[in-house]
């Protein structure tokens, strides 16, 4: 993340990646919501995290906002990839 902007990378057709490793809870949650705002409806966002608390909270905040959590995979020691399909806009 540079300044206040998130680093969102397009990694495939309709697939984006947000690398939130190195951040403490609750920042991965907010960066996930900001990333979802930026992608098209139906696209997939892969969020990479390594903060234990965010592993529970990133999927929870995505579901709360109506998005679909496709998978939570452990990709290394203490590292996770959470795949989320965007379904509509934000819910307050």
């Amino acid at each position: 993340m540079h300044g206040m902007e998130i680093d969102l990378e397009k990694v495939g057709d309709g697939i984006y990646r947000l690398d939130a490793r190195g951040y403490m809870c609750p920042y991965p949650q907010i960066f996930t919501l900001k990333a979802i705002d930026k992608i098209e409806n139906g696209s997939i966002l892969e969020v990479l995290i390594d903060n234990p608390l965010s592993c529970e909270n990133v999927p929870a905040v995505a579901r709360k906002n109506g998005h679909e959590v496709l998978s939570i995979e452990k990709i290394g020691e203490g590292e996770y990839r959470i795949s989320i399909r965007k379904r509509g806009g934000r819910i307050g």
Binding site: M24, D50, N51, P52, C55, G76, E77, G78, E79
Partner: peptide, 11 residues
């Protein structure tokens, strides 16, 4: 400890 290590009791 590094947060990835604090992910589970074993590590």
């Amino acid at each position: 400890v590094y947060q990835r290590i604090a992910d589970n009791p074993d590590s």
